[in-house]
């Protein structure tokens, strides 16, 4: 099927397979259609049907709150085409720049599941073929057993790779995580699409790194720090990682955080911030290379970064309220310009 897209200023055409999401088909063809979450939540990929028929897919998608049915709007990340279609997108659209890995569908199976802490698992996936991605990006991950795909960031950085690792947090009534946590899923087949996301680490940028993560939002920061260390980022620049969770029992991958801080003791500070229960003296004594603080992670970042914001590039990931609170602090307190803040908005 042929999809033609009218955007602000330009037109594009691409092929779409039967059952393929229109967004995926466009991205795969190297057309940078607007999207953020890719999973039905943010509403960024809304478009308007001009000619032809589409199947809207997931009707309960939260992102449908942003679409206006009177304007024949729909979410490209959920919809499939029933035949040739002409659609309109209310944004400027370009071709994907050279050097940006074009997303594609890839099959894989769960190679290993490892409990990290209560309700959080590391899931290693063996892919049928190698993929490339930028540090900070995510994949949409699905199984035939559950409708739809969920977005998970790569928690390691190695390229190209036929093995990806994700941090998966169990969510209440989350179809995919209910399935994943119900029993040992090692060997189960997954279908993935990606890489996606614009909150990427670019080694050539001269900025100091500030990574602010809440909960499972730590995953993309791990990939960013892996890449930053590998490319010698900290030889000339410094970095800060703030990792916020509720309580000590929610912290995970402490050994890996310690390894980062130990690798770059002068240049990379790692601060673990607990919002519900203040960190104990024992915790701090057991991990002398890490810093600990209490409160919300964005507040701790503001305290510890005083006087250090110059040339900063901030990366954020975490639950939407944490991301919003951090955005506010970065804009109105740290006074970073929008181009110095990288995140994928999932709400």
């Amino acid at each position: 099927m042929r999809i033609s897209v009218r955007t602000r200023g330009e037109s594009f055409e691409f092929d779409c397979a039967e059952g393929e999401k229109i967004l995926h088909a466009g991205l795969r063809a190297g057309i940078a259609l607007p999207y953020e979450c890719g999973s039905g939540t943010c509403g960024t990929c809304k478009a308007e049907v001009g000619r032809g028929e589409i199947d809207e897919g997931w009707l309960e998608a939260p992102g449908r709150a942003y679409v206006n049915p009177e304007r024949s709007e729909f979410l490209m990340c959920q919809a499939t085409a029933r035949g040739d279609c002409a659609i309109g997108v209310h944004a400027r659209v370009a071709r994907l720049a050279d050097g940006i890995p074009a997303p594609e569908a890839v099959a894989g199976r769960i190679a290993r599941v490892e409990g990290l802490t209560r309700g959080v698992r590391r899931v290693a996936v063996a892919l049928d073929r190698p993929v490339s991605f930028d540090a900070g990006q995510f994949m949409l991950v699905g199984t035939a057993a559950v409708a739809g795909r969920r977005a998970y960031s790569m928690a390691d950085y190695r390229l190209p790779t036929d093995r990806l690792a994700f941090v998966v947090k169990q969510v209440p009534e989350g179809g995919f995580t209910d399935w994943l946590f119900a029993e040992d899923r090692t060997g189960s087949e997954l279908d993935l699409f990606g890489p996606l996301g614009v909150a990427t680490y670019v080694p050539s940028l001269p900025n100091n790194l500030v990574c602010i993560a809440g909960g499972s939002g730590l995953a993309p920061m791990l990939s960013i720090l892996d890449h930053a260390i590998e490319t010698g980022h900290f030889e000339a620049r410094h970095g800060d990682l703030f990792f916020g969770v509720r309580a000590e029992r929610d912290i995970y991958l402490l050994d890996r955080l310690e390894a980062y801080a130990g690798h770059e003791p002068e240049r990379l500070r790692v601060t673990v911030v607990l919002s519900d229960v203040a960190p104990t003296a024992e915790l701090a004594a057991a991990h002398p290379q890490l810093r600990f603080d209490a409160g919300f992670v964005h507040e701790a970042a503001m305290r510890h970064m005083t006087g250090r914001w110059k040339s900063a590039m901030a990366y954020l990931a975490g639950p939407p309220p944490m991301v919003d609170a951090t955005l506010r602090a970065l804009v109105t307190e740290a006074r970073l310009t929008p181009s110095a803040i990288r995140y994928d908005k999932f709400s």
């Binding site: 919003d324 955005l327 506010r328 804009v331 109105t332 929008p338 803040i341 908005k345």
Partner: peptide, 9 residues
């Protein structure tokens, strides 16, 4: 004035 979604200013 900054919008919270994509930081348009």
């Amino acid at each position: 004035l900054t919008c919270i979604k994509h930081l348009w200013q």
